[in-house]
């Protein structure tokens, strides 16, 4: 039973990592690629950590996994926020289909 749960968690995690990888190849501009990286990759790491905890349960492993999980969840959005801010300040344009940009229109 445990083996099945671990297998399903690992397969789901690798599918979400594949989503992040395909997103970074297929999406059109920097901001949308950042969407893919921020969401799918961190969810995939969380699923892998759950698989490790279920497969080899001990309190030390659980503590380490919760620590990594909290760290990922807290810092990935901050990092992508900073890079998005810098890339907007550098003036990288949005791709076709952009309907509004209030950050440019309000500060000029």
């Amino acid at each position: 039973m445990t083996e099945w749960i671990v297998s399903i968690l690992i397969i789901l995690g690798s599918l979400f990592m594949l989503v992040a990888a395909l997103g970074i190849v297929r999406l059109h501009d920097v901001y949308m690629r950042m969407h893919a990286i921020t969401k799918a990759a961190s969810l995939s790491i969380v699923l892998f950590l759950l698989a490790v905890v279920v497969h080899q349960f001990s309190w030390g492993t659980l503590f380490g996994a919760i620590l990594v999980m909290l760290f990922i969840i807290a810092t990935t959005p901050v990092a992508s926020h900073m890079i998005a801010m810098v890339s907007h300040m550098m003036g990288i344009p949005m791709s076709k289909g952009a309907v509004m940009d209030e950050l440019t229109s309000e500060n000029k």
Binding site: M17, A20, A21, M34, I37, A41, S44, T76
Partner: peptide, 8 residues
């Protein structure tokens, strides 16, 4: 942002 994917 490639760094982030490689690290993940």
């Amino acid at each position: 942002i490639v760094i982030d994917l490689v690290a993940s």
